[in-house]
């Protein structure tokens, strides 16, 4: 899947905004949004928040996990855990990216937040790579991937499924041939 499609999916996540106008509830096909009261926070999909922000009709409130200390804590937890830990958002990377680039001026310490998100991502991706390595070497054909976010899964696609398909084909082709252990070659 193209990363822009992951972004497309992530844009359905909801964020809080503070509108500067009044309007009754808007009935979208995907569900109701609003009502909008100037100065009162309201939950809207990310794509709408970005659009309203562009038109200077609102201020975007960063989700509470989008904070240097919270992200550092998540990173430490991630480092300490053998498995993947649950992220505060199914699309933390994309949402952070979209919001941070839209709200340059509204959020203090923005560069630090960006670094913190990137660090968290790096820790998780390197963990993902080493688990993929162990998984392939173990010759398994099934693995559990709890708490991996869509963007992370997409980063090992198509390489991982293709590699597994190929191993599967080699195994089938070698049926009847003398036994050899793939992992030791």
């Amino acid at each position: 899947m193209d990363p822009s499609e992951v972004e497309f999916i992530a844009e359905k996540e909801r964020v809080s905004i503070v509108p500067n106008f009044n309007n009754a509830t808007v009935h979208l096909i995907s569900g109701d949004v609003g009502p909008f009261r100037a100065g009162l926070p309201v939950n809207v999909p990310v794509w709408m928040a970005l659009n309203l922000r562009q038109r200077q009709k609102c201020r975007i409130l960063a989700p509470d996990w989008l904070d240097v200390d919270k992200l550092e804590a998540l990173k430490e937890e991630e480092k300490a855990s053998k498995y993947f830990t649950k992220m505060p958002s199914e699309h933390y990377m994309v949402v952070a990216q979209l919001i941070l680039s839209a709200v340059e001026d509204d959020i203090p310490r923005i560069e630090e937040i960006r670094m913190a998100v990137k660090n968290l991502w790096d820790v998780r991706i390197s963990k993902l790579r080493s688990s993929v390595d162990t998984f392939i070497k173990s010759g398994g054909s099934h693995a559990r991937l709890d708490y991996l976010t869509t963007m992370e899964i997409n980063s090992v696609r198509p390489l991982l499924p293709h590699a597994l398909d190929f191993i599967d084909r080699l195994n089938k082709a070698s049926e009847g041939a003398p036994r050899r252990d793939l992992s030791q070659d």
Binding site: S141, A143, L145
Partner: peptide, 11 residues
């Protein structure tokens, strides 16, 4: 066994 909301890779 696949638990509700768990994620996997398999055939």
């Amino acid at each position: 066994d696949l638990e509700e909301n768990s994620q996997h890779i398999m055939q």
